[in-house]
Every structure is written in C-alpha cells, then in structure tokens.
Amino acid sequence: MRHLLSTRDLDLAAAVGILDVAEDMADVATREVKKLPTLRGRTVINLFFEDSTRTRTSFELAAKRLSADLINFSAKGSSVSKGEGLKDTAQTLAAMGADAVVIRHSASGAAQVLAESDWIDASILNAGDGTHEHPTQALLDAYTIRKRLHGDASRGRDLAGVTVTIVGDILHSRVARSNVWLLTTLGAHVSVIAPATLLPSGVETWPVKVGYDLDVAVDDNPDVVMMLRIQAERMNAAFFPNSREYSREWGLDDERLQRLRPDTMVMHPGPMVRGLEISAAAADSTRSTVLEQVANGVSIRMAVLYLLLASEGGGL
C-alpha cells in the first residue's frame, strides 16, 4: 500500500487485511512494554492544517508505539498564504526526509493532490480532507463493530449482513462518506437518516438506504446507530430551523434509546454535543462504543502506518 487516501479504493481483502493487522497491533497494547521496533528510523509527520487534537494524538501514539520518529507540523496559523501552503510545506517536509505524511486539511482532495504531486515522495495518509473522506475513522468504526460482534474471533471476518444506520449531517461529513464505502465493501447494509437539506446531492446513487425519519429507522431495529456531530455553523445557514427542532427530530434521546435493542451499538466519532444529537444517557450507556472507538483508533492507525512503511512493495 503506497498511500491511504480514501476507503473507496479498498477492496474487501484489503479492508479485512487492515482490520486483521490492527488486531495484532491491539495485542501490543496489552503488553507491559507497549512498543514495537518496526518503524525505528522512519519519520512520520503529522501535518495538520486543521485543528484536531484527538486525531493528531491518536496518530502520534500509533507512530510512537511503532518506534517511528513523529513530528507534529501544525500549519494552521502560520503565515503562508493560501495556495502556497500545501506545496511549500510538502516540499519542506520532503527535504527533511519524511517517510510518511499524515495530512488533515480543510479542502476536499488535499491528500490526493499531495499524493499525485511531484512535491513529495512520501506515503500520504489522509487524516480527513474537507467534506470528502476520513478513512482511518471508518476503519476504526468497522473494527469496533467487528470486535463487539465477534470478540476474539474477529480475525478474517467481514461485516456481512450487519445493519448500520448513520444519522445526521451526511452532507458535510467525511466520516459518513468513508463509512458508507467501507462498510458496504465489508458487506454491511447502510442506511443514512437526515433532513433533506443535509443529504448530499446524488445520495440516491449511493449504495445505501436513504430516509428522513429517525423513528422509523430506530424501529427498523439496526445493529448499529452511528450519530454524527452537528456543527453550530449549520444552524445559521438554514439547513434546519434551530437546535431544538433538530434534536427533537434527529437526536438520539432517551426515549429512542430505550426502543433500541440492548445490544445495538451506539457510535459517535466525537466530539459529541451532548443534548443536541445525542443524550447523555445514550452517550454513557453500555450500548455506547465511544471510548472503544478511541482505543481502537490507535490500533488502526498503527496498522495503516505499518502497512504503508514496513511492508515495502507488498500488497496487503
């Protein structure tokens, strides 16, 4: 694997392969010394044009557990003007000898532009590009679902037949896009639920079931309900009237939570806005996988860094 830019590029074998490597990486975390020498001498750069303490920290931990040299390069707030930023920064990192660049950028396609440019030769790992994709988030979500369902017997399995309902701002969500492609590839049946204003155009061509009504979706008895964060700026742009109405129509409140099966997973990529898209009870219930997702994120990111940097030339 040369780069990881999107989950659309992953076929079933590649996707299951990453999840299986992540299982091995998770075992490392149970040891007394949580560190592998695998990437000793390799340099990984966290290049974050957007703030994201959680994702950055997760990658940082992953790289360090593999003994790579990890440098945080925060481009945000620097004085480089628009347009020059990406190219100049990439060339700077290339000159410094980066082996892999983990990039978070507000522009869709930024990771792909970097990967296809001749500015830098390093492996590019997309840590979220605009409203396009966030592949490691989807991988850790898939890993989390698989782990809950199959526990220690997870290796080699896909998600055939699992029903996943994604609720919220699909239009602006890179998490939703990456999950739709990946979970579908793994055999899951995905539904998306949102007001019509927050569904992307062409969603009817996606391999998903589309609905507006969360109550109907809850009564469909899904295996997984994935709640997406609703950003404050959407409220000022007429996507919906106000947070009360959003919460009433599309929030996972206590009443809807009660109607879910006890083993239905409640997922959230974080950060959560409690009381808006998810109630405190839902976030804290035993159904919630939120903290497992965080822990599994490190394993997934270790797996991806390993596959990009340690298995030279080989596929998965």
Binding site: S108, D129, H132, R177, S201, G202
Partner: peptide, 18 residues
C-alpha cells in the same frame, strides 16, 4: 461553490454549483 452540483460533487465532498 466548487464544481457542478450532482452525484459527483456529493461523492467528492466539493460544494455544488447547481
């Protein structure tokens, strides 16, 4: 707006120009 609004803009995550 960044590109023609349609299924492709939805997939690429680029703001649509309808």
């Amino acid at each position: 707006a960044q590109m023609n609004e349609g299924a492709l803009s939805g997939e690429l995550g680029l703001a649509g120009w309808p």
